[in-house]
Design a protein around this nucleic acid. Structure first.
Lengths: 331, 331
DNA sequence: GGCCTGATTGTAAGCGTTTCCATTGGGAGT
DNA sequence: ACTCCCAATGGAAACGCTTACAATCAGGCC
């Protein structure tokens, strides 16, 4: 089942078979037919590795996400992929579970695969990796982490703004005791969120508590975090979650413990994943334009001759979306 | 950045470099160090394609799913992947959006990638593909579709049983008018589910209505389907959904239209995805052991010398899980 | 001192494609 | 009838790596 066998069967050279299969170069119609026929009969499937090894250019993009279970990442993937498909690229995903060691492994695998570009939509980071990627000269996009460089574009969301708007909104409604639920608090960007929350609250001189689920970005993690939160003697009137995915679990735990959301306790998320609308109550959250992020990421990776110097950094200002999970604190 | 350059820099042959990098064969400690050093300095990243082209055996498994947004598929992927990782395999995913044309493309891509095994967890199918895969001699696992063959293992869930149990349960509670919400009704397995529902209901001589969302397996699709359902003059007291993911949307629409679940209308899902527990009300559903399915799939794909003849078919009998979204019909 | 042995390392033949060049027939132009 | 040119094909060199197999070298033994 190699090119050569097909060639032999069709009575032509491998060069011709290759031309037929790649629709490149001219081939007489009759020979084309013969080759195609032979290929079909032999159940020939071109070896992708040989192909990319021989031809130089790769049209695969790589994408690495922290948590493939969180719809937030999938949404970005889908958006990036759909843009890529339209331009003849394909994209392969890998996920890290927020482990920076896996990030490094994945990134190396991508480089080994000779991807034409790499999107790292992750929260964890390994400083040496930045250097490694810069040297590699492969176009890279980071979301949330990393620094712009020769071949590195950054997309970042003004998380502080979203957080600030949320706190502001809750505060203006009368909330004074708020808690924050996150995960993997030790990771840079995630830690920054916690810090932002604390600083913002400090400005409002409200009481604050921080709780992080034990390394699980999931509804289950949110539920557990909420459980721990309620086990302490701090009684927040509002719980801000690092993302929607966890907020789903927080709401569940509150309900399980007999609290009504938002009557007794308000809950907010972050990301505005589709599910946030389908939650009951629908989640008040901060919108992060995942579709746009996916497109931006693609733009940054795709050669796109026309535009010479691509922007090296995109900044997104997220907006608060008030829905049903928040309201005034109980009197 | 090729093996040869590293070799030159380290003053050895490519064979030696290869040996060092693959930890295979013996190499004097001092040369090993020298090679590693050279590789690091040159920021050498082995070309994966060249590597798999040269060495024959592949340790990549391929997995194709219908809808990468539906947690059901992700769960199976994670389970399969974790089993694979433990045994030194890696697995790449692709998704089809329930399009059989994409299924074919993806499968061919996998074959081109020379995967060591392929898991097709999909609802769509292309008859010719079965033949193509059988000929290819690559170990294949199908879930829900396909027929056992020389190199093809099947995993199938007795969907009828789950459905029957659900109907039975609802009927015994007093429900007489039930509706079914699905998607992509034209696809084989999905159509079978609809049929199963109708047949089961026929046995109970209840009134029945079938509604399918327009090609969208998602909460949004479920919401839309529920909307259409309610627009008709059929008033079910229970809505059975083809899966949990859609049920989430159905519940939402019912609530939006002022119905209380389960007081006014009961809703059931299928799959028992994690989210079903976090729904409000928590979803009554039928458990499909995704973890186990992932493991089974891996077992079927991995060579595992010891066991000569692997079973060619796994059958799973799903169980009903009663939670909060169902109850007696309104009086 | 010659020879055998085992540890290291080098040589070179693939692996399956693509692609640059060269080659081969005709048919058109004169 | 004789160039010229173009369309259609074949030849063969990469692509970067793995892996027999060969070669080298330093001891150790007789």
């Amino acid at each position: 089942m190699t090119l050569e066998e097909v060639a032999r069967r069709a009575g032509v050279s491998t060069a011709t078979v290759s031309r037929v299969l790649n629709k490149a170069g001219v081939v007489r119609e009759t020979t084309r037919k013969r080759v195609l026929q032979a290929a079909r009969e032999l159940r020939y499937h071109p070896n992708l590795h040989a192909r990319t090894l021989a031809g130089a250019k790769s049209n695969t993009l790589g994408m690495i996400v922290s948590n493939i279970e969180n719809p937030f990442f999938i949404d970005i993937f889908r958006s990036l992929e759909s843009a890529a498909l339209q331009r003849g690229y394909e994209v392969v995903v890998e996920h890290t579970d927020y482990k920076s060691s896996r990030l490094v492994t994945c990134a190396r695998a991508m480089l080994g695969r000779r991807v034409a570009g790499l999107a790292a939509i992750v929260s964890e980071m390994e400083p040496s990796l930045i250097e490694e990627l810069t040297e590699s000269d492969v176009p890279v996009v980071f979301y949330d982490v990393g620094l712009p460089a020769r071949n590195i574009t950054n997309i970042r969301v003004r998380y502080e703004r979203g957080m600030q708007r949320t706190v502001e909104y809750l505060y203006s409604m009368g909330h004074r005791r708020m808690a924050f639920v996150g995960h993997h608090a030790s990771l840079g960007p995630l830690q920054a969120r916690k810090k932002t929350f604390i600083e913002t609250m400090a400005r409002y001189s409200g009481q604050v508590q921080f709780t992080a689920a034990l390394n699980t970005d999931s509804p289950a993690g949110g539920k557990q975090a909420a459980h721990e939160l309620l086990a302490s003697d701090f009684r927040p009137t509002a719980v801000l979650c690092v993302n929607d995915f966890m907020a789903l679990g927080v709401i569940r735990e509150l309900r399980d413990q007999g609290f009504s959301v938002p009557r007794d306790i308000s809950v907010t998320g972050f990301d505005n994943i589709q599910l946030s609308e389908f939650s009951n109550p629908a989640l008040t959250t901060v919108n992060i334009p995942r579709r746009k992020i996916g497109q931006m990421a693609f733009e940054a990776l795709a050669p796109k001759e026309s535009s010479g110097d691509r922007p090296r950094e995109f900044v997104i200002d997220p907006e608060l979306l008030v829905r049903e999970s928040t309201g005034p604190p109980p009197v």
